[in-house]
């Protein structure tokens, strides 16, 4: 059994202008001890997928399909159950560490609040002791525990966010663009940190990013998302060597080719999710478009073991 087994997940926001299907019939698995890189352009629904796993999406949002985590379907679970899982078995690290910590609370208060939310009988002193240990593990001087978020740099705040996420040694960590707002050196430090923790805890990691370079470096598997749909899935090396979906090919080609220093990009714009194209949402931009691409969404095919692609080219 997989650690996380998402199947046929659909998430539709309700807005004044009509429903927005941010995740559309997505199927994805994350195993223990592996990192799955979920890539796509901004607005493709990858962040929504991460939040849907924790159940922190606006009230009134339509969610269908199943998210089975450790044998429990989180879509069907009630709020109390979800709350027990959040921060304990399942943790989420967000993109923008500058705004994710409460400016009025010290770092210590953040930890004490979290620990006592899941283990109410813990004494404040014990909670602080645990917090100091975990801060040291992410290389934040534990003596700074009584300081406020604004006294730390962006990279340090992200390490504090990671420390908060790791207090209960979760079996799954969702990292949503964890390094996008940080500079390259800090980015490398944070990702190395995540990699070593993953090994130590035998954790599953879902790394949500738009940066293919990060996926190549740190992920074991890759899942490519376009306009709410999963376009292609497979081992990182396999997909990078031999991309199959035209969108994946386009993405890989738009990374600068160091030999020719030529920057190519996929022509056209990402679709408007309020009025998505019919059939395969990529067909208006697709170089290999066929007549039936605009009528229905292609079925998922498995060209080989561990590889999935949703494109009529292969069915």
């Amino acid at each position: 059994m997989s650690l996380l087994d998402i199947s046929h997940l659909t998430v539709a926001y309700r807005t004044r202008s009509g429903p927005i299907v941010a995740v559309n019939d997505a199927t994805l698995r994350v195993e223990r001890g592996t990192t799955v890189g979920l890539v796509g352009e901004s607005g493709c629904g990858k962040s929504t997928l991460g939040k849907a796993i924790l159940g922190i999406i606006p009230e009134g949002t339509r969610v269908e399909g199943s998210i089975v985590f450790d044998g429990v379907d989180l879509v069907a679970a009630d709020e109390a159950t979800l709350q027990k899982y959040r921060g304990r078995n399942l943790s989420l690290v967000f993109q923008d560490p500058m705004t994710r910590l409460n400016p009025l609370m010290t770092i210590r208060d953040h930890f004490v609040e979290l620990i006592r939310a899941h283990e109410p009988e813990t004494e404040k002193e014990d909670a602080e002791k645990r917090a100091r240990e975990i801060l040291a593990a992410v290389r934040i001087p534990p003596d700074r525990i009584k300081q406020y978020p604004h006294e730390f740099s962006g990279g340090m705040r992200q390490r504090i966010m990671i420390a908060l996420a790791l207090v209960f040694r979760p079996s799954l960590l969702i990292a949503d663009e964890p390094t996008t707002s940080l500079d390259v050196i800090v980015e490398a430090q944070i990702l190395e940190l995540l990699r070593s923790i993953k090994r130590e805890f035998d954790m599953g990691v879902l790394l949500i990013t738009h940066n293919l370079g990060l996926v190549a470096e740190y992920a074991d598997e890759i899942a490519v998302m376009y306009a709410g749909h999963l376009a292609e899935r497979g081992g990182v090396l396999d997909v990078f060597e031999e991309p199959q979906h035209p969108y994946t090919k386009g993405l890989l080609e738009s990374v600068i080719d160091l030999d020719t220093t030529e920057l190519r990009s996929i022509p056209g714009q990402p679709p408007d999710l309020l009025h998505p194209p019919s059939g395969c949402p990529f067909h208006p931009r697709c170089p290999s478009v066929m007549p039936h691409c605009s009528t229905s969404f292609p079925p998922i095919t498995r060209p080989r073991e561990g590889r999935e692609v949703a494109c009529y080219l292969y069915s």
Binding site: L54, I56, R86, R88, S91, D96, T99, R100, P103, L114
Partner: peptide, 17 residues
């Protein structure tokens, strides 16, 4: 709607807190 409120929810902090 603040980011830190969403982050606190994501950590399973109690509703009252």
């Amino acid at each position: 709607q603040a980011d830190y409120v969403e982050a606190a929810k994501a950590r399973g902090v109690r509703r009252g807190d």
